[in-house]
Write a protein that binds this DNA or RNA. Structure first.
Lengths: 156, 156
DNA sequence: ATCAATCGTTGACATTTTCAACTATGCATA
DNA sequence: TATGCATAGTTGAAAATGTCAACGATTGAT
């Protein structure tokens, strides 16, 4: 009873501020869901010694699109120097390889090794579970709708 | 012509990676839209010497809900020590005041001053414009739908 | 009256972000 | 073809942010 009382108060006050107008600010909603989401994702990926960042790079490296580091930086909204560090670590673990760009010898494309692809296959399962945990309050149609709206907001 | 050629290539390659499966990962979509969004928001708020963080605190302080610092930390997904720094700065600028908690003398509630409310009224306009810039690709109904889905994902 | 838990605060530490160089390469044109 | 300007990757430093452990003051339960 005593602990329950505390918990009730805690959960009662926990969402008290939802009434504030900031809860209608898209920027805030994105930040909050993203904060919770990356925590869940990082926890799920820790088993594979990956974070959302390295997982994203590995995923793109395995896409067959042979992205250059510059493209990775642009696409992931990261500084090129951060890509260097991420690829360095993945390459050290033999999960990806750097190859000289096909038409541009300045560029380096990042491609997953077979070892990287295998790890990714496992990690992707964990990531999928994490995603459904983050979106647990939405049914399948709503989750799909959310994805579609985010994609449209980003790329029209 | 020369510059146009470069630009065409750049915009052509810019979204090349959208084809990668990561573009269907909600975590990634949230991260990317959030990254772009906070950049736009911070730029819009710079005029008032605010960032999205301090703007959020000011908005909650002005909500009439008299949030405690602990509630602000939970709601904004920040460490309590970060709230201290944010409130310190806003209080130094006479935009908010700390008041002892009503029932709990350990807690401190954060409330906007009239000066804070006035600044907020201006900043809110800039923030609203920034939001519509971020969601420019969505029509009004879609933007409302996106908000509703984000709110449901967060609070059910 | 005591004991564990919570609030705000401080300070240390780690991580992440941002920026300015630098080399090598590419591209356009004089 | 030589020259100048822009770009890819890299390095390293500085700034901003995030994380965490401790502490005094206060609370609430026993």
């Amino acid at each position: 009873m005593t602990i329950e009382t505390q918990d009730e108060q805690r959960t009662a006050t926990k969402d008290r501020l939802v009434a504030a107008p900031i809860s209608h600010d898209v920027g805030f909603l994105l930040a909050k869901l993203h904060a919770g989401g990356s925590a869940v994702n990082n926890r799920a990926l820790a088993e594979f010694d990956l974070k959302v960042r390295s997982y994203s790079v590995l995923l793109l490296a395995d896409s067959g699109l042979e992205p250059t580091q510059r493209e990775l930086a642009d696409f992931l909204s990261l500084d090129p120097s951060q890509i260097v560090a991420l690829v360095d670590e993945l390459e050290k673990r033999k999960l990806v390889v750097r190859a000289p760009g096909n038409q541009d010898r300045r560029a380096k494309t990042v491609t997953a090794t077979s070892k990287g692809s295998e790890l990714l296959a496992q990690a992707a399962i964990a990531a999928r579970d994490a995603e459904s945990e983050v979106l647990a309050a939405l049914d399948d149609a709503e989750a799909a709708q959310l994805k579609a709206l985010l994609r449209k907001a980003l790329w029209g």
